[in-house]
Computed example of a mutant assay.
Amino acid sequence: MNPRRKQRLAVVASIGILVIGAISLMLYALTDSIDLFYTPSEIIEGKQGQRPEVGQRLRIGGMVVPGTVSRNSESLAVSFDLVDVGPKVTVRYSGILPDLFREGQGIVATGVLINDTTIEAQEVLAKHDEEYMPPELAEKMKGIKHVKPEDASY
C-alpha cells in the first residue's frame, strides 16, 4: 500500500471513530430524558421479560378504576388506581388534575416508579376523545368492559 492510500485510510478511520463517538455521546445524554411507556400489567409482570427499576422515570397509561380516586382535603394530593387487563397500579399525584379526568377514563401519567406498584406522577394527561386509545393499550384492552364517564356515578 502506498503512503497516500495509508493516509486516506487513516483519515477515513478517524472520521468514522469521531462520528461513532459523537453518536454515543448524544445517546448517553438522551437517556435521562427518555420516558418508556408501560401499561399497569407491564409494570407488574415486565415488558419483554424486563421489569422497570424502582426510581426509573416512565409513562403509564390505563383506565382509572372507579371508586379508587382519593383526594386529600388539605392539599392537591390525589391517588388513584390504574388498570388495563391485569393487576392494578397506584398513581399518586400532587397538583391540579385535567378537567377531563374521571373515573373509568383513560389517562397517561408521567412519573417515577416508587415501588413495585406505586408511581409518583409529575404530569397526568386525560384523553379527550372517547374513541381514541393508544394501539398497544387497545390491543390489551380487547374484550374488557370499562365504565364510560357518562355512566360513572360520582
Rank of each mutant, 00 (worst) to 15 (best):
3 P>F: 15
3 P>W: 15
4 R>I: 05
5 R>H: 06
7 Q>V: 02
7 Q>H: 08
10 A>N: 07
12 V>A: 14
13 A>G: 02
14 S>N: 09
16 G>N: 10
20 I>S: 11
21 G>Y: 14
24 S>I: 10
25 L>R: 08
25 L>S: 06
26 M>K: 06
26 M>H: 10
28 Y>K: 05
29 A>L: 10
31 T>V: 09
39 T>R: 11
40 P>K: 03
43 I>V: 14
43 I>Q: 06
44 I>H: 10
48 Q>P: 00
49 G>Y: 11
50 Q>P: 00
53 E>M: 11
55 G>R: 07
59 R>E: 13
59 R>Q: 12
63 M>S: 05
67 G>Q: 12
68 T>Q: 14
70 S>E: 14
73 S>K: 12
78 V>H: 15
79 S>H: 08
79 S>E: 12
80 F>N: 02
85 V>H: 12
89 V>C: 03
91 V>E: 07
96 I>C: 04
97 L>C: 05
100 L>W: 07
103 E>V: 02
104 G>M: 12
104 G>V: 06
107 I>W: 12
107 I>Y: 10
110 T>K: 14
111 G>F: 11
113 L>T: 00
115 N>R: 08
118 T>R: 07
121 A>K: 00
124 V>N: 02
125 L>Q: 11
126 A>N: 06
131 E>Y: 13
135 P>I: 04
138 A>I: 01
139 E>A: 03
139 E>G: 00
140 K>M: 06
141 M>D: 02
142 K>Q: 12
146 H>Q: 09
152 A>V: 04
153 S>C: 06
